[in-house]
Structure formats: C-alpha cells, structure tokens
Amino acid sequence: MHELSLTQNIVELAVQYANRNNAVAIRSITVEIGALSGVVADAVAFAFDVCSKGTMAEGARLDIRRIAGVGRCLRCLRESQLEALTHVCPLCGSLALETMQGQEMKFTEMEVD
C-alpha cells in the first residue's frame, strides 16, 4: 500500500504548485503511472479522496494516464509491449531486453483557477 505515500505526495505537490502560482482553486490533477511501475492506479484513485480532504486539492478531479510497458531487445533490436517487468525478449528469447517505457510515476500537470 505505498500508493498511500505516493498519493500524499501528489496532494503535497499540487498544493505547493497551486500556491506558487497564486491559484485559488485546483480543478484537476493529471498523473502518469506506468504499467511496470508496481503502482496500482485504482489504489491511488481511492487514496486521493482521503489524502486531499481539508486541502486545496479536495474536490479536484484526478486523471490517471496509464503508460504502457515497452521493451527493446538489444539482440534482435525489436520493440515489444510488456505486461510485466522482465529482461526476457518475448520475440527472440534473449536476456537483453531493455525497458524503454512503463516505469513512470509522474505528476504532469494541473488545471487551476
């Protein structure tokens, strides 16, 4: 359940940036969560209501963009979609797969008044 700590960070960052930008209200918050990051997006959405209560982020819409996992094999040089973290290339079986995308957990933008 480290989603709770991550969600606390989301709220803390949102309030910080809102204050820094002289915002009076936060309408929406957008985060990116990679399919290989080990973070459960539903758990973040669930924790957000609790963590934002009593802060400027309360009532804001949380948009979670899921980033697909993509690997690139250093042997056969092909890219493949990944559902799980692995170094085995699903196309040629070598142990030389590099993760290109999918480990993100990023606060990307927010809409404020």
Binding site: L6, I10, M105, F107, T108, E109, M110, E111
Partner: peptide, 13 residues
C-alpha cells in the same frame, strides 16, 4: 482556469 505543466516525479521528495 489555466493549466500548469509540472513534470515532477512522484518520488522526487
């Protein structure tokens, strides 16, 4: 309403 771009890792702190 306006949009603020942030691009900060959730584990930055």
């Amino acid at each position: 309403s306006r949009t603020i771009r942030i691009e900060e890792d959730l584990l930055a702190k």
